[in-house]
Amino acid sequence: MTTEVKDKGRWQRFLESDFFYAFKRSPVALVSFAVVCLLVLSAVFAPLIAPTNPFDPASLNLMDGFTPPLEPNAFTGNTFLLGTDDQGRDVFSTILYGMRVSLFVGVAAVLFAMVLGIVLGLVSGYFGGWTETIIMRVADVQLTFPSILVAMLIFGVAKGFTPVEYRDQMAIWVLILAIGLSDWVQFARVVRGATLVEKNKEYVAAARMIGRSPWAIMIKHILPNALSPVLVIATISLALAIIAEATLSFLGVGAPPTQPSLGTLIRIGQGFLFSGEWWILFFPACTLLALALSVNLLGDWLRDALNPRLR
């Protein structure tokens, strides 16, 4: 029996946990976590890191256009790490700023999907009956369409309702809404499954007996015990959301050229691929690949680490 009086803090418990132990011993987890951190930090601090602000017309010089990576420009003699595009924008800087948009859209869309899915999953799992039937049938129907089509549909409808002058401003938010709405189903399914298991446990009966309201039981008792699978799905969804956003932007229905995401950059770069300016496409594509892959690998590892059956 320990005589320690002080409660262990969260951080201390985390450092001693099996989870952190497994993390330290997994090269895949360490590398992908490092890559994700590097990319996220450089996106967040893009204004500090980027040599130029690619969206400030004052800093642009058309003469710098089409400079290959690490070669001095024929006219101005300027050298760029990853070259420049047709308008003389530094590709490195555009990637940093583009990643910001991509990550922001991805994270916000997943958060939106997560909140929506958790609430609907909890409600359908806890109350059952007609509520559950309706929610889960809607989810089933939505699953029969590819999520990118659902996102395009929502994007199209929402765009139709937005006044023309606000379209560019609103595009990002519409994008988040579209990707989020196409993605809530898996959260709802997982949370519903966990709720069905947890609500029959005796600690829930104990809480019901002392007269706690259904919402208090769902949020305070059941949700914390359903969070690990949600975390796994959120991570994997993040990778998918980033790709979905890139796909939409690549198809020209996503982020506007005034606020380009990685997908927009790839679309722009694609036009120059066959005329030899490969770097305009290549580097944004590599960044997208690295981002999506490392988030995905991290999610896969999380799933294994949090799955008690595999431990």
């Binding site: 446990k201 007996m209 015990n225």
Partner: peptide, 13 residues
Amino acid sequence: MIFQDPYASLNPR
């Protein structure tokens, strides 16, 4: 009330 299963009757979180 006191329940049967001491593993399920306390919220693990």
